[in-house]
């Protein structure tokens, strides 16, 4: 299948070629390739940042692990070819650029590289942008006051326990 342009940083070889060079460039090894099942996400914490790593048909992708809406665990979301749906209220995040579909918000996108069967992650420089509440400026992208807004962008996520 064609490689989306936005995955170019993952797939091209202008990144350091050896594990030691990757570490020197600021990457951290977070596990083996097979530690993340295809079309699922897993979380890691690198230099204090919670990062969700996804394994996609075109390669790996990494974004902030917390949904900008209500802090939902994006690594537990439903994953499509290049999109994840938050399990809490169905917000959809484009894995190629971190934008939240239809919301004007954005989560941080991080560098992720596969070398010799291992996954290396380097936290990106940019923070997420919580478009609806840019004034918070706390860099988490989390947005408490808006947590109650209707967020049913996806399927009904009826999760009542009983």
């Amino acid at each position: 299948m064609p490689v989306p342009e936005s995955f170019a940083p993952v797939m091209t070889d202008d990144r350091p070629a050896t594990p030691s060079a990757l570490v020197a460039a600021g990457y951290v090894a977070v596990g083996a390739v097979d530690d993340v099942p295809m079309l699922e996400g897993r979380r890691t914490t690198v230099r204090g940042r919670r990062i969700a790593v996804f394994r996609l048909p075109a390669g790996f992708a990494a974004i902030d692990a917390d949904c900008p809406h209500a802090g939902g665990p994006l690594h537990d979301g439903l994953v499509a070819d290049d999109c994840v749906t938050c399990p809490l209220h169905g917000w959809r995040i484009d894995l190629t650029d971190g934008t939240v579909v239809g919301e004007g918000a954005r989560v941080g996108v991080h560098d992720v590289v596969e070398r010799d069967g291992r996954i290396y992650v380097r936290p990106g420089a940019g923070d997420g942008i919580a478009g609806a509440c840019a004034g918070h400026g706390d860099g988490t992208g989390a947005c408490g006051p808006h947590a109650d807004r209707p967020g049913a962008r996806g399927p009904s996520l009826d999760g009542a326990a009983t």
């Binding site: 596990g31 897993r42 204090g48």
Partner: peptide, 10 residues
């Protein structure tokens, strides 16, 4: 893999 757990990290 890692059905209930995170990847390596800090």
């Amino acid at each position: 893999a890692n059905q209930f757990s995170d990847l390596d990290g800090d």
